[in-house]
């Protein structure tokens, strides 16, 4: 029996980078009488593994570092789902 584990990777644009989607949503919220201080848009990526939790987290970390996140402009967080 296979043991599936899902790991989530959250990637957010760094504060210094202009988040165009976030800014557009922020303005639309204001126009709809739902003002917020700041709205930022990132990505959430679900990865599925067959390994132990420890292995899955290790692999997800490597995938995030090598492809999902560009450290110059983004930050990431990983958690088991």
């Amino acid at each position: 029996m296979s043991n599936k584990i899902k790991v989530g990777v959250k990637v957010m644009p760094r504060e210094v980078i202009l988040d165009t989607q976030g800014r557009a949503i922020e303005q639309a919220l204001k126009l709809n009488q739902m003002p917020v201080g700041q709205c930022r848009v990132g990505k959430f990526i679900e990865l599925e593994f067959q390994d132990s939790q420890e292995q899955a987290l290790k692999q997800a970390e490597e995938i995030a570092k090598k492809m999902l996140c560009n450290p110059l402009i983004e930050t990431y967080e990983i958690k088991v789902l």
């Binding site: 980078i17 202009l18 165009t20 800014r23 557009a24 560009n70 110059l72 402009i73």
Partner: peptide, 10 residues
């Protein structure tokens, strides 16, 4: 070096 991100004017 560097990165290319969305145009400032969107």
């Amino acid at each position: 070096p560097g990165a290319l991100v969305k145009n400032e004017g969107r």
